[in-house]
């Protein structure tokens, strides 16, 4: 367990040294800049747009980190052969995978947390300066606590994408892993379409195939509650927890498969 922790902390340190936190600066600039511009352009809807923008940015920036660093986690070590001296230490390969994964999840957690704080800060400011008339037209309060639900599911989704990237990078080239992970990210987001397929097609074989895909592919569309939250629709706590549990089970499956493959691999 201690080895896993040390490896994880080293991944975190690597992401700091590789200037990953710069994306937070970009995020802040985007948020503050657009809130400044939007305040002049839209009538009272700037709070909604800021919410949309910050949730989307947290999701997309996180996606880039999850895919690009996630893929490098293992493949870079193997390619540059830094793994040789590491695995000669008393560490098992599953511990190595677990540590790498935990490290990137830590990076993502810090990233999402800082973004959340920045979002609430901007929303709080906008609410403070806005006139009560405008506030009456809002569907949801400015610094709405429900936004945390969306951020929470975004974080779980990013964890899942990281696990996907790690899984693919244990057996395929970085470029292919990136393509596969991104492909599954897109496919996973179209998952609801797959589920509705049986209403659209006549062929039972196609409907059955779509159903199987719906269950086997990561159901990423389930993690997207951005629109509901921004429009002030309720998101049930049960939905939140069952989706998070789904994510956890899926991640566990991916990590176990990654460990299995990685434990048998030759480093030529």
């Amino acid at each position: 367990m201690r080895a896993v922790r040390h490896i994880a902390l080293n991944v975190f340190r690597e992401s700091i040294r590789d200037r990953v936190p710069y994306n937070l600066v970009l995020f802040a600039v985007l948020l503050i800049g657009s809130s400044f511009l939007l305040a002049q352009l839209t009538a009272g809807q700037d709070v909604k747009i800021i919410k949309d923008l910050s949730l989307a940015a947290a999701s997309i920036f996180g996606l880039f980190i999850a895919i690009f660093i996630g893929i490098g986690l293992v493949s870079k070590e193997v390619e540059r052969r830094s793994i040789y001296s590491l695995l000669a230490k008393p560490i098992s390969r599953p511990q190595f995978i677990a540590g790498k994964y935990a490290g990137l999840v830590l990076t993502l957690a810090v990233n999402v947390a800082v973004m959340t704080v920045a979002m609430y800060a901007v929303l709080g400011y906008l609410t403070w300066i806005e006139s009560p008339d405008f506030k009456a037209s809002w569907e949801a309060p400015g610094p709405d606590p429900a936004l945390l639900k969306a951020m929470f599911l975004i974080f779980i989704e990013l964890m899942l994408v990281t696990a996907l990237a790690l899984f693919f990078s244990t057996f395929s080239s970085p470029l292919l892993s990136a393509a596969l992970t991104f492909g599954l990210y897109v496919a996973g987001n179209f998952n609801t379409e797959l589920r509705n397929f049986e209403h659209v097609v006549d062929s039972p074989a196609a409907a059955w195939g779509a159903r199987v895909l719906y269950h086997v592919l990561p159901d990423l569309s389930a993690f997207d509650v951005k629109t509901q939250v921004v429009h002030g629709f309720p998101v049930a706590a049960g939905y939140l927890w069952s989706t998070a549990a789904y994510g956890a089970a899926y991640i566990a499956a991916l990590l176990l498969a990654a460990m299995y493959i990685f434990s048998r691999r030759d480093f030529k």
């Binding site: 086997v216 566990a252 499956a253 176990l256 498969a257 460990m259 299995y260 434990s263």
Partner: peptide, 10 residues
Amino acid sequence: IKVLAACGCL
């Protein structure tokens, strides 16, 4: 065991 556990998780 890991393969079985992975299938179980899925």
